[in-house]
Amino acid sequence: ETKGLLFIPDISGFSRFVTESEINHSRMIIQELLELLINANQIGLEVSEIEGDAILFYKFGEPPQLKELYKQVEKMFCQFHKNLMAYDRRKYCQCKACISAANLSLKVITHYGEFTEYHVKNFSKLIGKDVIVAHQLLKNDIAQHEYWLVTKDLLHNHPLADFTGWMNWNDSIKQTESGDIHFHYTQLSELKNEIHDDPLPPLNLSDKRKILSASSLYETDIITLFHIAGAFEYRHLWWEGVEKVEEINHSLPRVGMQSIWTLNNGKMLYYSSSYSYTDDKVEFTETDEKGDQVTYFTLVKIADNKAKLIIDVYKT
């Protein structure tokens, strides 16, 4: 087959001013979002390639019904923003990349046309004038960055439809070497009003008693101390009796992240159960799988280069 759908979700909005160290976090955030978009595929799209902050999906054959396509766009858009809302409320890191992640946006380009697949070793690539057209449509004059773009070729003379009360189609033309490409687009930002983040689990210490407490002063700033004490990845380097820590579910630290600790007397699962941050004080807790033990970490800024760490252990 030489005709098919081209479907490109494209993420934008990261500040160009993130520093070198923050680029690593923006890369991890984008990676997580791209994986989420791939997992949200429900109409049998194939991934051709990941192109920076975008994914080139395709599907040979007749174009899907517009409503089916909208449902796909809606699912990706809602999961994308739900993930960002959840990260914004749960994130440990306060770097520019992690803070500005909440402002990321998603647009989706959908086009129908001719293209073909070719293989180089184990890699498959798409080639054809409409692949170029779909990419050219990413660069356009649409002011906002959250929209769904549908080309006239995809509509196949079917009329446009409003699938929601707020949907409002605009028309435009993109001039390319292949001629004028007529397209329609509708903003998607309204969908964000329908997304609700799952509430954070409450931290309950009322049924527990403090059984241990210790503190120490360090000649360092509070953020550096927090990077070492807060991340599960360094825990085996300082927590006595911990031989290995395997992180399970998140590359960037946040409330809800889980890890399995190999201790000298067996394995335990711990998850991050709460977190709060101000410039002078950072608090976070870790709870065991059964909820019987809570380790309460408090970091206090004493001076620019002096910080205190207090660890309190609570048990049921």
Binding site: S216, L225, I228, A229, W238, E240
Partner: peptide, 22 residues
């Protein structure tokens, strides 16, 4: 047990110092 656990926790806090120097 309690004294031993406290000593272990204190030792853990001391272990952070060389990590901060890296």
């Amino acid at each position: 047990g309690q004294k031993k656990m406290e000593a272990t926790l204190k030792k853990s806090l001391e272990n952070i110092i060389p990590l901060l120097e890296k």
